[in-house]
Amino acid sequence: MNEIGFPCVVCGKRLLETRGDVISCSYCGHDEKSDFVCKDRHFVCETCRTCTPTEIILKTSVATPTDDSLFLANLLMHHPAIPMSGPEHHLLVPAILLTATHNAGHRMALESRLRQALKRANRFGLGSCANLGACGAAMGVPIAISLLIGAEYTKPEERKTVLRASAVAMTAVANLPALRCCKASVYSSLSVGTDFIRRELELGVPPVPHPTCHFEGNSLECVRQECPYFEQSKLDGDLT
């Protein structure tokens, strides 16, 4: 296999040119003749390479067997369709929370709920955090909760639960350092959302361990060690 200059989408290691071995796509799980693969056998199929953000989130969420929210979030955020910041992140949180709950054993009609969630999350446009006081990523938590409990405005208890989820998620994002970082908002919302599902809905979703950011070198606005998700070992590495 020949090594080529591109880094792997998933792990950043150098991609190797293959001779058409059939490999499963890291996103949709589809088996396809590969052209580039990294040492860890990560491969992205032709269709997934050209997907829109909505398509890749939907396809990956439906196909993945994992209930690890953090793994799924990092996988999706590494996809080239998801930029460093932008409203694409608003779609991630509800999709990941629903997928993790589904894969943890609380089976549901996942695809239709995901479509509903993405439709609702799309209502929050660019800059809604500052313009509306509603971070789109944080709003993913109440969207997922709403779909999990079938909340409507005519159901008082469910309505209250969703509003509480919204308040908790929004407060967590507001307490992050003063920066515009959609990655941090996603990490924070996933942690809070998973806790909420476990505590309030009493569903056995695996807890999210403290996230460490995979994207800290990609943004000029990154506050590095001030961010709760900054990997301390990277700073130690800088100093040595």
Binding site: V9, D35, V44, E46, R49, P80
Partner: peptide, 8 residues
């Protein structure tokens, strides 16, 4: 172009 580039 897509990343990594597809056949097309």
């Amino acid at each position: 172009l897509a990343y990594p580039p597809t056949n097309r």
